[in-house]
């Protein structure tokens, strides 16, 4: 691959020639504000925030779509560019509810962060806002289209990554909106990739609602308990309750999850959870008991069978859902503790 040399803000850099200016800048630690570009998705070029000046080019160009070229002299920050960016932010916010106080995405909203950075309140060009009466009735994803800034990331991720194409741009001009066919309720794979890439509060999890944002929220990086892919997830919890699950963009799964990984956690707080050891009485009914009693009862049965019929009259079934440590210890228990190789798990099922 050919390399090209160029300067960004006076800094000379050499990069592969198939990069865009934005990618080249990011690779060398130069941040350029943007809303519609997502690293995993093809560029869109709609938000116009990533504009830069190139020496010899009369108008500012979008760095997310412009490829690098040998000898380019690029400036990412000038007073003029900052004015332009403020202008665009003013316009975006003039068509945005700006109800950050109650918005699910406060604190994780890229639009909010840019508005904060640029000190833009959205008052300067106040005017009509898009309003929508209809709410999407699907059980997973809250779609608040009034907060949508039409960056197109959701459309792209649904097409390019998920291959579902449940949504697309509809209408045009100021009436543009992201829509399903015939504006029906969303009926897709509910992977929530769109939620993951949404830079605002337009797309959130219905499960998340009013559960907590960042104050007092603990984030734990762990692994999804569903299929064998082993996606990296981040569990957000507050007061010992899971309030949402996300995945960080720099994980090997690139922040992408499926419906189960993203929205499949509520079983944890199901009222059906077992909370005490149970022993079955003669009547056939279960009765709650203490750990000591349950363990002693179990151990006594194991001892009895082993003594009467030998260790191979006992068997153990371990679980592909338990950890390596637990599985290791389980078979060690069966082999060394009980004395049998009758131990298996459900790999084949």
């Amino acid at each position: 691959m050919a390399m090209v040399s160029l300067t960004i803000n006076g800094k000379k850099i050499t990069v592969p020639d198939d990069l865009t200016i934005l990618e080249a800048a990011n690779r060398h630690g130069i941040a350029i504000p943007n809303l519609c570009k997502h690293p995993q998705l093809t560029p869109f070029g709609g938000c116009r925030l990533c504009v830069v000046e190139i020496k010899g080019v009369p108008r500012p160009v979008a760095s997310c779509t412009t490829p690098v070229n040998e000898g380019m002299e690029i400036t990412t920050v000038t007073e003029q560019l900052e004015q332009h960016r403020k202008f665009v932010l003013e316009l975006i916010l003039s068509d945005h509810p700006n109800d950050c106080m109650t918005c699910e995405s406060t604190g994780s909203c890229q639009l909010q962060e840019l508005a904060y950075t640029y000190g833009v309140k959205g008052q300067e060009y106040a005017g009509e806002r898009r309003t929508y009466a209809k709410k999407d009735g699907n059980p997973f994803i809250e779609r608040d289209l009034e907060k949508c800034i039409l960056c197109g990331r959701c459309v792209k991720v649904c097409q390019e990554i998920q291959g579902v194409e449940a949504i697309d741009f509809g209408y045009r001009g100021f009436k543009s909106k992201i829509t399903t066919a015939y504006e029906d309720d969303l009926n897709c794979e509910f992977c929530g990739q769109c939620v993951h890439v949404c830079p605002t509060g337009a797309l959130t999890g219905k499960l998340w609602k009013r559960k907590g944002r960042y104050e007092g929220v603990k984030e734990t990086d762990t692994v999804c308990p569903y299929c064998g892919t082993g996606c990296n997830i981040t569990v957000h919890s507050k007061n010992n309750e899971i309030i949402r699950i996300t995945s960080r963009p720099w994980t090997w799964n690139e922040g992408f999850l499926c419906v189960k990984g993203r929205f499949g956690y509520p079983f944890v707080s199901s009222p059906d959870r077992l909370t005490k050891p149970l022993i079955k009485r003669k009547s056939g009914e279960f009765e709650e008991t203490t750990w000591t009693a349950a363990l002693e009862y179990t151990a006594s049965w194991f001892r009895k069978i082993r003594e009467e019929h030998g260790p191979d009259a006992l068997g153990g079934l371990s679980s592909a859902r338990c950890t390596n440590e637990e599985n290791y210890l389980f078979q060690k228990f069966m082999r060394a503790g009980i004395g049998t190789n009758n131990v298996d798990h459900c790999a084949r099922l």
Binding site: V223, C224, P225, Y226, C227, G228, T229, G230, G316, S318, S319, A320, R321, C322, T323, N324, N327, Y328, F330, Q331, N341, N342, V343, D344, H345, C346, A347
Partner: peptide, 17 residues
């Protein structure tokens, strides 16, 4: 493609006869 989160691990850990 393994079906469950830790089938690979359970096999590795010899939960097998």
């Amino acid at each position: 493609l393994r079906g469950q989160n830790n089938v690979q691990g359970a096999s590795d850990m010899a939960c097998a006869p």
